[in-house]
């Protein structure tokens, strides 16, 4: 029996095994190669062992960063205080704050796309400009942003906005234009005005789709955020990864990368769950 059959019906167990197969293969291969390298050179820093990574991650979650000022004796601190002062926690909070500010700044982008799709004059003013802006490689603007906004928080947030906002604007615009005309005419015949139709009919219908679009762009958001943090920052997950790279600190870099992936996965999962709970009609429709 060929595995390349359109009508194949793998059992649940088979699906479960197959879906974890590549994870298992990757992990086993890594530790196999790592062990071989460490047998050859016990001081190898390129592929740390599980023990090394565990110790480095424990240090990152319980100890402050080397460049942090230590205000009290760490041995007297509670576990919660240790975590609160830890390198990982502080980096996560710094990156998370920038991420949330950027996400909040994407909301006006959604509104602009909505208005461009609903009101022809607004569309005429912005569409061509946004289409052009969308083609600019955001990372190429990085030097300009640092010159214009300085190397503090604003430049990093602006990089995300410049990089992702055009996509979100165009997505919202297209989603707005995709709402059947019958719905808009129906709104008018039920006594709704232009803004009632825009916000109470069209916006409500496109919002779950926009959330999906933002969700699919999460990786781009993080990409721009990491670029900004790696180049000019004093804290943050990407700053730490860039810093540790100089010392070949793979035992911390690898757990950091996995931590970022886990955070992004949780945000994605949270947004998907929220979308499903808030808009039961959307998933089933």
């Amino acid at each position: 029996m060929s595995i390349l059959q359109i009508h194949a019906q793998p059992s649940r167990t088979t699906v479960w095994i197959l879906s974890w197969f590549l994870f298992a293969t990757g992990i086993v291969s890594y530790f196999w190669v790592s062990r071989a390298r460490h047998l050859d050179n016990p001081d190898d820093r390129v592929m740390p062992t599980l023990h090394q990574m565990g110790r480095a991650f424990a240090d990152a979650t319980l100890k402050p960063a080397e460049d942090d000022e230590v205000t009290s004796d760490p041995n007297r601190q509670s576990l919660a205080a240790k975590i609160r002062n830890s390198m990982l926690w502080k980096d996560t909070i710094a990156t998370g704050r920038r991420f949330l500010i950027s996400m909040a700044l994407l909301f006006p982008a959604v509104l602009l796309g909505l208005h461009m799709g609903m009101f022809p004059y607004v569309g005429s003013v912005f569409l061509r400009f946004v289409l052009f802006f969308d083609k600019i490689v955001a990372l190429s603007l990085l030097p300009i942003l640092f010159i214009a906004f300085g190397i503090d928080e604003l430049a990093k947030v602006m990089l995300i906005v410049v990089g992702v906002a055009p996509t979100i604007i165009l997505d919202s615009f297209n989603l707005t234009r995709g709402v059947p005309k019958e719905q808009i005419v129906k709104g008018f015949t039920l006594g709704a005005g232009d803004f009632a139709i825009t916000y109470r009919i069209v916006f409500k219908q496109i919002w779950p789709r926009v959330l999906n679009s933002i969700r699919l762009n999460l990786k781009s958001v993080m990409l721009f955020l990491f670029a900004g943090e790696m180049i000019a920052s004093q804290d943050g997950l990407a700053y730490r990864i860039a810093l540790l790279r100089r010392h070949m600190g793979m035992d911390t870099i690898i757990p950091y990368v996995l931590w970022v992936a886990l955070l992004l996965f949780l945000v994605d999962f949270g947004m998907r769950t929220l979308n499903r709970k808030l808009h039961p009609w959307f998933q089933e429709a």
Partner: peptide
């Protein structure tokens, strides 16, 4: 209309 007569949300 023939279709899209109701607001799906």
């Amino acid at each position: 209309p023939q279709k899209y007569s109701l607001f799906p949300d």
